[in-house]
């Protein structure tokens, strides 16, 4: 397979990138590591006239901002995030999640921003369509869904590992365009639409990522369930954060985010609410798992049945919560 023809532009800064995006409008695609975009281009799923490479743009090192937030550049490679002691100390959940993305090779190329901005996935969609599934599905501009034939919309699933972790860390992202900048919670980045998962307009780019510091006892865990344990997207993933009262036993606030079950990561809000104010115990965790199963209905994807995904969700949430509880310590 070969890449379709395109014009190649290099950008030396985020500002220049925003300028270029504005100039080329919908005809342009941004490329950081390229691990997501290039296979899509080879499959004919992305056919930009202009490819704007940000490989030359400077990448600022992780730092703690004046308000105590951990500030990360979206251009950091996943490997750099994985290896950063500042990240490990301030957001161990992110370190854990990043270390499970793809493979070493992919983490050396892929970037934080690229991982957040990846497209939703579906077996019927993520292939070329030269002789298979030629008739376009919703995601390719058509009006059918191969995966769920009775579906009236696209059922592709967001499968990134980083976003669920950032949900549970209550991260924010700075979104930039040539003319304006805004900061939104990470959850605002995703529309929940399989066909068009991101809110970003063609002119916009992620400028920075902010992760609030925790003030108190915290335990966190990221659980990625996959079949071969590497070089693979998650069948489903769970990012759990337990913020504790000073007694170390009562949960002050909990955040449980599940990935790869819908077009965006999903917070298990009822389960979170149910656990808050309670002592962490076998019983309260089991109750949380039960509530999460009530509120989250995994979309069957990648050949897995909803029955299996539901059972796996139960096991993985329970696992993530138990590990998080076991890791509670003063940060």
């Amino acid at each position: 397979m070969h890449l379709p023809r395109f014009t190649y532009k290099k950008s030396d800064s985020l500002e220049e990138t925003a300028q270029l995006l504005s100039r080329y409008d919908t005809g342009a695609c941004l490329m950081a590591g390229g691990t997501e975009l290039l296979p899509r281009m080879k499959y004919g799923l992305a056919m930009p006239e202009v490819l704007i490479s940000m490989k030359r743009s400077p990448v600022s090192s992780p730092k703690i901002g004046s308000d105590g937030d951990l500030v990360l550049s979206p251009l950091m490679t996943l490997r750099a995030v994985e290896g950063s002691s500042l990240v490990r100390e301030n957001a161990p959940l992110l370190s854990e999640a990043v270390g499970l993305v793809g493979s070493g090779e992919i983490r050396h190329m892929g970037t934080l921003g690229g991982n957040l901005c990846q497209e939703t996935r579906c077996l019927y969609y993520n292939q070329s369509h030269s002789f298979q599934f030629k008739k376009p599905c919703f995601k390719r501009g058509g009006d059918i869904c191969y995966s769920i034939p009775k579906g009236k919309e696209c059922w592709a699933v967001f499968m990134g590992d980083i976003a669920p972790a950032l949900y549970s860390l209550e991260a924010k992202v700075k979104i930039m365009s040539r003319d304006k900048t805004r900061i939104i919670p990470i959850e605002g980045l995703y529309r929940g639409d399989g066909k068009k998962p991101l809110i970003l307009s063609p002119h916009e780019i992620i400028g920075e990522i902010f992760i609030p510091g925790s003030n108190g006892l915290r335990g966190s865990a990221f659980s990625k369930f996959s079949f071969r344990g590497g070089l693979e997207f998650a069948v489903l993933s769970v990012a759990a954060v337990l913020d504790m009262e000073d007694d170390g036993e009562t949960c002050r606030s909990a955040r449980i985010t599940v990935g790869a079950v819908a077009a965006a990561p999903v917070r298990a809000r009822c389960a979170e609410a149910g656990i808050e104010g309670k002592n962490i115990s076998d019983r309260s965790l089991s109750e949380a798992v039960r509530q999460a199963l009530d509120e989250i209905r995994p979309v069957p994807h990648h050949g897995q049945t909803s029955g299996f995904l539901k059972e796996s969700l139960k096991v993985q949430i329970r696992h993530a919560l138990s590990v998080a509880a076991g890791r509670v310590k003063k940060d």
Binding site: L123, Y124, N126, Q127, Q132, F133, F227, R228, G229, G230, L231, E232, F233, H302, G303
Partner: peptide, 26 residues
């Protein structure tokens, strides 16, 4: 791990990503 998943004569996982050949750690 490995299965060529087909539906109505068409292949759903025609790539190393979605066809799970074992890795060295498996």
């Amino acid at each position: 791990l490995e299965e060529v998943i087909m539906k109505d004569g068409r292949t759903l996982n025609p790539s190393w990503l979605d066809y799970h050949m074992p890795c060295i750690h498996n």
